[in-house]
Design a protein around this nucleic acid. Structure first.
Lengths: 225, 225
DNA sequence: ATAAGGCTTATTGTATGCAAAGTTTTGATT
DNA sequence: AATCAAAACTTTGCATACAATAAGCCTTAT
């Protein structure tokens, strides 16, 4: 399922670089530069940028050089608010529809989380955490809901890695995940939804605090160049 | 705030035609045809189509002629499920943040709904109904949430008008709106969220039923030719 | 009659050139 | 030295030409 068109290829490449933090918010993405850099013409570059634009990762003000989207603290809070609701719905649906296989995957990922906390591997923690949520998306059996939620996760991802590595947050995350698992295991879908919503909102608050209390020139989001 | 670029213009035009039902799901949107029809080149046409593609209104399978997106009944149900959750969140936030002006706007729209039912003006009903929800988005004071919810409303809109005009649904809608208003007026944000979620889900079920029980060649969504 | 295969045609993907809008630099004037 | 204006330059928006791929059609063989 490799991308066949240059535009699609570039879109994937840029998306990866933005999500991974290699391209920081505010970075200018001029067509000619990218075209030259990837040995393609401006046409597919434009298409890739436009697509990233409508997905929200790139800011496309007309007649101006596109930049990696900068999210204000206020908007970040709003995004987590919505994400909390969607993840909550995922948990609610998953509680009713989860298979036993998926249930054991959840338990396993919980063990892995504790392990990576003990061995102090924040990157692994980040990845396992992602898997935990991914299992719940799958268990919810709503491809559309999964897409929407993933898209939102992606959009906040460039800011998220700041907070994920914080020790306090890692411990809290494990406890919050446990609350979700517990609610799901007794089949209480409302409690599962509430626990998940709370989990995501706490994460958002913590991230918002972190960013808001940083001096503005420490925030990567300020127009770097 | 008129669109200045041809691509943006065309995007708006196509979006309007799709939402209004003038362009039915399954309609082919070939670049050359549109370019000729609007006296512009293929380049801005491509851009407009790509944008509509990522917003979900147009289906853009690679190397194939784009078509107005066809939504399966299953996916439609999933979309309403998510929309119900988002509209519920809107109602919850709006309950806490609504101004007195907005509150009276809600009451007024409720009167207008009853009026347009009495005078049998389904188009007006449709429009006032939209306004009702729009006021709640605004009252929720989360531009991001409003955007997400609107986008979803737009995506189901081509299918929605089938059910809106049904007399039973119109009466039910008025009652369901009233439940939302009542909960909001006593400041019970949870009840408001639940009432709104219920309202949107009922609408979705009703629409899904309608479409599922129709012979497939009566569904506009089937690839018309 | 039907299915398989190749050829023709239609349509999308990409490159390039030109026009228009925006940005920066430079210079003149106060 | 500071400010404003204009010109030079940069960068995006659009048009057109060409390449590549998929779709449709016809032929042919079984």
């Amino acid at each position: 399922m490799a991308a066949i068109t240059r535009a699609e290829d570039l879109k994937q490449t840029l998306e990866t670089k933005i999500l991974s933090g290699e391209l920081l918010p505010g970075t200018r993405l001029d067509e000619q530069g990218l075209a030259h850099q990837f040995n393609i013409s401006r046409t597919p570059v434009r298409e890739a940028l436009r697509q990233l634009g409508s997905s929200g990762l790139v800011d496309m003000r007309s007649r101006q050089t596109p930049i990696v989207a900068i999210i204000t603290v206020q908007k970040l809070i709003q995004m987590f608010e919505v994400m909390a609701e969607l993840e909550g719905l995922c948990a609610r649906l998953a509680t009713r529809r989860i298979t036993s296989q998926q249930r054991s995957q959840l338990l396993r990922s919980q063990d892995d989380l504790k392990e990576s906390l003990k061995t102090d591997e924040p990157m692994r923690f980040y990845e396992v955490n992602r898997e935990f949520h991914e299992v719940i998306y799958e268990a919810a059996s709503s491809e559309f809901l999964a897409e929407q939620t993933r898209n939102l996760r992606n959009r906040v991802s460039p800011y998220r890695r700041h907070v994920t590595a914080q020790p306090g947050r890692m411990i809290a995350t494990i406890a919050e995940h446990q609350a979700v698992i517990d609610a799901m295991s007794i089949g209480d879908s409302d409690a599962a939804a509430t626990a998940m919503r709370r989990h995501v909102n706490l994460l958002g608050d913590s991230l918002a605090d972190l960013i808001a209390h940083l001096p503005s020139d420490m925030i990567e989001g300020t127009i770097g160049r």
